[in-house]
Amino acid sequence: MRAALPTRLAHIYRLGVKELWSLLRDPAMLVLIAYTFSLSIYVAATAMPESLHSAAIAIVDLDGSPLSARIAAGFYPPHFKTPSLVDAARGDAGLDNGDYTFVLAIPPGYQRDTLAGRAPAIQLNVDATRMSQAFTGNGYIQQIVADEVGDFVRRRQPAAAPPVALALRMRFNPNLEQAWFGSLMEIINNVTMLSIILTGAALIREREHGTIEHLLVMPVTPGEIMLAKIWSMGLVVVLAALAALVFIVQGALQVPVRGSVALFVLVAALHLFATTSMGIFLATLARSMPQFGMLMVLVLLPLQMLSGGTTPRESMPALVQDLMLTAPTTHFVAAGQAILYRGAGIDVVWPQMLAIAAIGAALFAGALRRFRRTIAQMA
């Protein structure tokens, strides 16, 4: 005879409390949660390798003209350190010693040749062992030199006004701050990762400690056991993500959040229903934590790399775009970015919420079926 609804809810609640107590007795998991939603987010926001920050540059000015001085003044923090004015020998030695990443050599007569329309060349020497800065800085330097030379020539030789004037406005991130993107995307990615790990580890821990056998003799159903793990581990992840959003992102990093935090938490809760079910399904396939870790690598990397958080989905092959529509992370990333970056409301993100709920229901049904089969084999 089926238990009454209040009794079933009581079972789910008490089993969930048991999961929380088990988590409190696992110091490794507590350290992982603390690191994932604190230092990990701060590092992802402030140490992005593709950004150019405080690059060392030296300038060999053999022209000594107002134009060459203007070019030298175009390099300043935060992208570059204040340029060092050196001779050619010191510039080469500085590259050899690793003192400079870039050495810009301005030849004699550069201003004269530029004003005469002879298009003189400037030599840029780059330390390519610093790969990320070398690649990004090369583009920055070309743009800075082109802008300074173009402005100088226009002042000396006024040209006709262009037929179209482009008015550029940066929305949502006016200063193009890398930390604004990195910190919020790290929270979105970590919600997925930690929810799968916590629920999967909770089930494997039950099996390794032998407590799953105790549950089999209790008047509880597999569905109640699953729901208990889902709400308890989901609650931990939601509270950790909310704390990170308030204290790390808005507090330590001073990143503005445009939209409703409550709406983001609601979308995250729907997403957690899907990912925690996924974690339970993976745990029924694995026999130990090492096996579970290997399955995590195979599942988590595609989810994070192909969901649109790292690379825009529009740049992916059409087959990958269509395939990733079946993943909850794709819709969670789209909804999270819309809420946190652009201040979208529920009238904008309801299609993503509906998709996450549908995918979560399918994952829950599949995980429950697999979980029942696993318990039947143990009985």
Rank of each mutant, 00 (worst) to 15 (best):
M185A: 05
W180V: 05
L85S: 11
G259T: 10
I230A: 02
E208W: 02
P317L: 06
P222H: 05
F247T: 11
P351L: 11
L325G: 09
A241D: 03
R342G: 09
G366F: 04
R313K: 13
S288F: 03
M29V: 02
V153F: 09
M353V: 12
A357G: 08
T114N: 04
S132R: 11
M170G: 05
F37R: 02
V164R: 05
I339C: 07
P290D: 09
L5K: 15
A161C: 01
A201D: 01
A165R: 15
G308H: 09
M29H: 11
T221W: 00
D26V: 01
A318H: 05
S40M: 08
R156H: 15
I356F: 00
R258V: 04
A45E: 03
I339V: 15
A202W: 09
T7E: 14
K229F: 02
L39F: 14
S183K: 14
A379L: 12
A338F: 01
V217C: 14
W231A: 03
S183A: 15
M48A: 12
F80S: 07
L168C: 00
A244G: 14
N175Q: 08
S232E: 05
A73Y: 10
P108T: 10
L242Y: 11
L184F: 03
A45R: 06
T326Y: 09
N138C: 05
R370D: 01
S84R: 15
I339E: 04
A338L: 11
Q250G: 04
A167I: 07
V238Q: 07
A105Q: 15
Q304A: 01
P78A: 08
L24F: 10
L306E: 07
L272D: 06
R372P: 03
F37N: 02
R25L: 07
Q157Y: 02
G223C: 00
D113Q: 11
F371D: 05
R130L: 12
G343Y: 03
L263S: 14
N190C: 04
R8D: 04
P256Y: 08
V333M: 13
Q111K: 00
F172W: 14
N189T: 00
P78D: 10
V265S: 12
D151E: 08
V126W: 06
L52H: 02
D113F: 00
L30P: 06
S183R: 15
M316S: 01
S51D: 12
A274P: 08
P66C: 04
V257Y: 06
A34D: 03
E186G: 00
A105V: 13
A335N: 09
R369E: 00
Q143E: 07
V191D: 01
R370L: 07
I197D: 00
R155L: 10
S277F: 01
G150M: 11
A167F: 05
H331K: 12
T36S: 14
A167S: 11
E224P: 02
A134Y: 10
G345N: 15
L32S: 05
W180I: 13
A240M: 10
F75Y: 13
W21F: 12
I204S: 03
